[in-house]
Design a protein around this nucleic acid. Structure first.
Lengths: 190, 190
DNA sequence: GTCTATACTCTGATAGAC
DNA sequence: GTCTATCAGAGTATAGAC
């Protein structure tokens, strides 16, 4: 009484996504994945050359998805509101899908210098920041904002804050960074 | 012709520190550690009950060391200069000892809510921030600054920035956060 | 294209001789 | 207090039957 038992890349990826979401990268192993698909581990290798290929596929999907989330959140808003909304969406996504988010900034993740989904994601934030600061290609402020957002996500997740403080820290820090961008824009046409 | 061959907790910790610094937590394993000490793996268990105890000892040492570094860097400076110096020291330490730093913010690290070395570290930064913002127990701004610093460290390390931008992002972001603290202080006696 | 069976390497940890 | 020997488990990946 074999189950559907027909393996396709998409079916494998779907189950792999579930394992990733539940237990993180370290829980995405070939044996449990095969078990969840009612298949022997060796069968997976007919569809993906190795575990790394599986992770890469999930990583690309997460980059694309995350990028779309940020764009949707900021679409049609004025520059400061757009960036604020994107920042909120950033936080929400990282909370909702911590392990997908973790995949995006894993050590082996390709730097966003090379074309690809990660680069697209970078460009989305770069565009929002540059619009607010009215500074073309404002990498410095993009880096600063991204560092703040990522650091907040990581610290919050690791429980390094107590129970108080985190949310206030987010609003305070974000306000400080966005206000500075706005201030620069005001002084720019000088 | 056995080597010094006498095992002490400090000797073990010293070698463990080397392994950690070279390859991170995942490189700190009992077999390589024993080999480096010219000893059999089982011998280590006479001095440490398990691997976790070893990691905990290294983590406490790193917290204490890091705290001392920040205090030394900021000692005797005016509030803004003190905080800026501490931030620079934070970055330098994380760059110089990435794996010790990584231990401090590992998922299993105790939240700085409980007394201990981690709490002391938190209090150091909290004190510097509160002095500048002239806001007692200013957890929100401490969280914001810490998030920024940690995020910057992580992103820089993972190569997520290109070759340009990082350093400018650090100065820009730090300036924005510290200026806001100073501004709040100015408006406080109101 | 899935199966059985297995090779290989790594991990932490323990029992008991000396 | 270090040793030999071993347990028990994890992991990725491959060969070859069907």
């Amino acid at each position: 009484m074999p189950y559907p038992a027909k393996l396709t890349p998409d079916l494998i990826l779907s189950e792999a996504q579930t394992l990733l979401d539940n237990g993180g990268e370290s829980a995405l192993n070939m044996r449990p994945l095969a078990a969840a698909l009612h298949v022997q581990p060796s069968s997976l290798y007919r569809h993906f050359p190795d575990r790394g290929a599986l992770l890469q596929a999930l990583e690309d999907a997460a980059s694309t998805e995350f990028n779309r989330v940020l764009q949707t959140a900021s679409a049609g808003k004025a520059s400061r509101a757009a960036l604020w909304a994107a920042a909120e969406a950033y936080l929400s996504y990282a909370r909702a899908y911590p392990h997908r988010y973790g995949l995006l900034l894993s050590p082996h993740a390709p730097a966003p210098v090379q074309p690809g989904p990660a680069k697209d994601l970078w460009n989305t934030v770069l565009g929002l920041v540059s619009a607010l600061s009215q500074t073309p290609d404002d990498t410095a402020r993009t880096v600063a904002l991204w560092a703040f957002l990522h650091g907040f996500v990581v610290l919050e997740r690791s429980g390094q804050f107590g129970l108080s403080g985190p949310r206030g820290g987010f609003d305070t820090g974000l306000t400080a960074l966005l206000d500075e961008m706005k201030r620069v824009a005001a002084n720019r046409p000088e």
